[in-house]
Structure formats: structure tokens, C-alpha cells
Nucleic acid binder design. Structure first.
Lengths: 327, 327
DNA sequence: TTGTAAGCGTTATCAT
DNA sequence: ATGATAACGCTTACAA
């Protein structure tokens, strides 16, 4: 491995001069600087990150922590994050799994953006207490070193529920996320709020887990409830994944039940797949890229010691054909 | 930041004893070890990655480099990689973009798995020359420090082409990837080989780029060619993404043309979306998880100085309903 | 303008 | 069984 020491030797100067030169310090003559740069290039010199960050106590790398790499959902978010970070002079790495948590306390990254239910809040707080900077995307967490960038879940859930009611539906179902999910809790609260202030509406809550299989199970249960779709029903799945599971189940087991006629379905997230369902899924849309970009921005501010308010990502109702008018 | 120095002071021992104790060396008494461990925990001690890897010259982290984070395609691959790496005591980070290339030469990672067309082969070779270990998933590269784990592109392309011919189709189209793509080149070669040894088959090659839009353009061009689908045609899209672009274009612009009847389509990759197309896309399938796992395994072997042969991922034809019999 | 030297937090060799 | 100490490659006062 070639180090600044080797360059110094070659150039006949001291290592500090080399260091200054490499970092473009004006303290070194243009002449020596360019000579040193030339030698560095000739020797194929590459700085050693470990040595540098041992000294500077920063790595210029931000970590994004996800539950898994299933991607479909995260692509745009990461793209948005990366763009912003690049522009601020930071690099981005994506991590998943308990093992990789160490990257933050061990200082391999300068900060973390977290969208990972399995990441403990207490764990995060203990990191924050030690001075590490975090942005959370999936929970509320109050700490000077933690910022939140959250979806406007309540607005989304209200939009969805009100739309179903507006369309004349009175037999509502809500398929939730896993019990620990902040997003799911928020959505359910909003749904109940809307239902409570509307008379004549019945709501059945079905516990799900944000996976396709939960959507299938929910569909089965609803079919049992509604006499095989004879009674019309309107379902708000708390994410698109489950809505699609529901589509699949119905297509496979009840081909006679038509979505948007006997059963009406709304999702949440507007994932890519949602635009390929037949009929097109009605869902809650928001800019995943902006979400990622905001998170990055907030994190950099935290790192720079700027004050930051929590951010909120606004959502809209995207009307597809999976919801029709109630009779 | 609390360091082993602090622990040493508290415990009234030297830093070397602390270091040994923390690393579970048998040189230190069980007594002192447990005392030191207790103090470390009490002080909330976390080792500093930079300092350690400055000394040990390793980070126990592997980087996977992708063209982008669009995920849909990479989820399983990364999952497979991560499982294998975890088992071998390594962590995984996912990187994308030119910026992040520095991680390898700067020794922030112990090795790299590369599936990124934009990563220069010459760049990789220069890294390999300096002793860095790489596994490439998207090109052939001969170097003692580089291993390849490649798809069996030829087999896949042959399966697809032969199937189309077998089904009685004679007017074939091939929609390729971008000109630089190794996978695309391999597939095209195999297609041509099959076509050349079969009489009465005409092949038209349409240049694509692995994106949906290329599939749309190709569809338009084929429609023009075949008098709006009046003449039957059979298309091998070199990936599913383009095949789906083709589905979209046809659904939007030629609803009267039925896939699997007037036009027959085969894809490559069997991405998740492929199972949602109507009709189900016929495609070339392979285990993405196994691909990732192999790559990880090979890389660890390289790092350990073991000898490694190149690996190959086998593929199969997955029959959907997007190809029917030719008349 | 350039050099000297201390120090970042570890590991590991050599003494004791 | 434990301690002193050098070293890893770099940054940065401070001195010259």
C-alpha cells in the first residue's frame, strides 16, 4: 500500500507537506503541490479511509437502514436520498439486518436514515444519546439528535375512507399492518375517526402484516363474511402489497367477483405493481423520492448542528378503477 | 468517546490487557477478563472501526455495487448475498453511483461484488492489480483477483428461441439490451446461432436498452412491420422489463392484437411483475438468490486466498401464456 | 513555504 | 498473566 510517506520520500519533502498538498492547502507552493500530485498519481496513491476518519472523526458516508432489500418499494426513496447526499458531498450505503447496526456506533457512517421496523427505538435513543445523528421514517421519536420525516398517514387514511363512503359504501373493512407499525396505527386511528362521525357505516378491522399473504387471508375472510361477494363491501388495505394479495386471491378463488363492482379496494403507497393490476388499483400516492430527499437533507442539517423541524410528506388520492359506486 | 484507554484506567490495567480481554484472548485470566468486560459494558464502550481496520487492514464488510436502486430485480440477489456473508462473519453494504467506487481502493470494504454496467472494466482491473478482490456478475474478466459468476445466457437464449420455433413461429424478433451489455451480446449470439441452423426462419434484431420504453418502441416498430399484427410474429425480449413495456404498448395502442395469438412474447429474468401480466409472460427463470449467494461465496474464497473457478448460474424456461402455437 | 511531532484508537510484539 | 511500546496512515498545531 502506498502512503503519503512514500510520496514524501519520492518528492523529498515531509509528510505534512504532502498532506497539505493533497488537500489543496494554499500553504504549499503551486510548484511543490503539482509535483506532489504528479508523484501521487504516478504511484497510484489512494488515501486510506480508516486513517483519515480516525483523525477527522467523520467518514462522509450516510447509511440507510431497511428491513430487507425487497426493493420494489424503496427504489425511488433511495434515489432521492442519494441525489441529495451526493450534492452535499456525502456517499450513501444501504444496510439491512441486525449485524449492520454496528456501523453507526462504530463510526463507519456519519449518520443514519432508518426505515426498519426491526430497529429498536431504545437502541436508537442510546445511539442518539452518544451523539449520533439519526432520521427516522417510521416512528415518532423525540430527541435532539433525531429527526422525523413522516408520511401524512392520517390524511391518507382519511382520503381513502372518505372516498369509499362518498362512493356510497357502507360496509367497510380495514386491513392493517403489523401491530408494531406506527404507520398502521396512525392509519387505523384516522379510519376510525372518519367512520365514527359518519352514521350508518360499519367497519370491520382485519389484522394484516403488510405482506401479500395477509391480503389473501383478508380476502378469504371477507368473502366468507359477504356470502361470496353477494353482499357488496369496500376494503381499505393499509398498503398496496396486501391489496394486490387480495386481487390475487379473488382472481384465483372467486373469478365471478368483480373488483370495483361487488368488492371495492383501496391501497396505500402506489407501488409500481399497482399500475399493472386489472382493474387499476385506487391508492394513496406520495413522492417516495421526495421522502428520501427530505430525510437526507434533515440528516445533513443535524450533522451540521443546524436546528431542524420535523418534516411531513403529503399524500394524495390516486383514483383507479378498483372502486366503483355503491348501489 | 470512550476508548480502551478509559477502560484500562478504570480497571487499573494496561491497554494491551484490555485489548486482549475484549478479543477473548486466553492470555488474560478469566477474572480480569470478566472485570474488564463489565467495565466496558458499564462505560458503553464501542470499538472504533477506523482504528481497528487501520491496524488489521480489514473491515469485514463487503460491498455490492448496482447500477441503481430500482430494486425489483435485485431484492432476492441481495438477500442471497447477505445470508451467505452473515454466515461467514461479514457485513454487506449496497452502493450505487460513481462516487461510491472509492470505497474499494480506500479500503472501506474488503471486497466488491459488481453488477453495474457503468463500472469500467479497466477500473476494476486496476483495483485488482493493487490486490483488491472482486466478483463480477455482468462481464468476463480474467484476473487472479477477480472471479466471475455469470448467468448461462446462451442456454437461456437458446431455450427461448428454440421454444418459439418449436411452437411454429418463423418471423422472429429479438429486442436486445444496450450495446455495451455483456449479457445482451451473449444472448444475441445464441439467438443467431439457433436461427442460422434452422431454415425458413427470419430474424429481425431491434436494439433496446433493457428499459420499458425500449419495449414500447420495439412494439411500435413490430406493429408497423406486421401490418398492425395481421402478420403473426414472435418476439424474444432480452429482459422482462422490455417485454412488459411491449405489453403496455400493445394494450394501449393495439387492444385488438392479442398476445399469445397474433404476437408471441418471451422475456428474460422472471421478475416479480412478470407473474402479473395478462397473459402470464413466458420467460427465462433462474435463482437470483443463488446468484447472490454464489457471488458472496466466491468473494470470500478469493479473500481467504483459496483458489476459485468461475461459477455459472443455470436457467430454465418458464412457460406462461404469452406464447401460443403458430398457425 | 516547509518540517517536526503529537495524536486519533486499535493491535501485536516483546519484555517482564 | 500483564505491561510498555511501536506501528497502522493521516491531520494539524506549532516551530523553523
Amino acid at each position: 500500500m502506498v502512503s503519503i510517506k512514500d510520496i514524501a520520500k519520492q518528492a523529498g519533502v515531509s509528510i505534512s507537506t504532502v498532506s497539505y498538498a493533497l488537500n489543496g492547502s494554499p500553504k504549499v507552493t503551486y510548484e511543490t503541490t503539482s509535483r506532489i500530485l504528479a508523484i501521487a498519481k504516478a504511484l497510484n496513491y489512494v488515501p486510506n479511509a480508516a486513517a483519515r476518519s480516525l483523525k477527522t472523526r467523520e467518514t462522509k458516508i450516510i447509511g440507510v437502514f431497511l428491513t430487507d432489500f425487497s426493493g420494489a418499494f424503496y427504489g425511488d426513496l433511495l434515489q432521492g436520498t442519494r441525489e441529495t447526499l451526493t450534492q452535499k458531498g456525502y456517499d450513501l450505503i444501504v444496510c439491512s439486518g441486525k449485524q449492520s447496526h454496528r456501523m453507526l456506533p462504530e463510526r463507519m457512517i456519519d449518520g443514519a436514515i432508518i426505515l426498519d421496523q426491526t430497529f429498536g427505538s431504545d437502541e436508537m435513543i442510546s445511539y442518539a444519546d452518544r451523539g449520533h445523528k439519526l432520521v427516522v421514517l417510521d416512528r415518532e421519536l423525540s430527541h435532539p439528535n433525531i429527526n422525523q420525516v413522516l408520511l401524512d398517514n392520517k390524511a391518507g387514511a382519511m382520503l381513502a375512507t372518505e372516498y369509499l363512503i362518498e362512493q356510497g359504501h357502507r360496509t367497510l373493512y380495514a386491513v392493517t399492518g403489523p401491530s408494531g407499525s406506527y404507520d398502521s396505527k396512525q392509519r387505523l386511528q384516522a379510519v376510525m375517526q372518519v367512520v365514527e362521525r359518519t352514521s350508518g357505516v360499519t367497519l370491520t378491522v382485519i389484522e394484516g402484516d403488510f405482506n401479500k399473504s395477509a391480503g389473501e387471508r383478508a380476502a378469504a375472510s371477507i368473502m366468507a363474511d359477504t356470502n361470496g361477494g353477494t353482499v357488496s363491501s369496500a376494503v381499505f388495505c393499509f398498503n398496496d402489497e396486501m391489496a394486490i394479495g387480495m386481487f390475487n386471491y379473488l382472481a384465483g378463488n372467486h373469478p365471478e367477483v368483480r373488483i370495483g363492482e361487488q368488492i371495492h379496494i383501496v391501497g396505500f403507497d402506489n407501488i409500481e405493481l399497482a399500475s399493472y393490476t386489472q382493474p387499476r388499483l385506487t391508492t394513496i400516492d406520495y413522492s417516495k423520492r421526495k421522502w428520501g430527499a427530505f430525510a437526507a437533507e434533515q440528516l445533513i442539517k443535524l450533522i451540521n448542528g443546524d436546528t431542524v423541524d420535523h418534516e411531513r410528506i403529503y399524500v394524495t388520492l390516486l383514483k383507479g378503477n378498483s372502486v366503483g359506486a355503491g348501489k
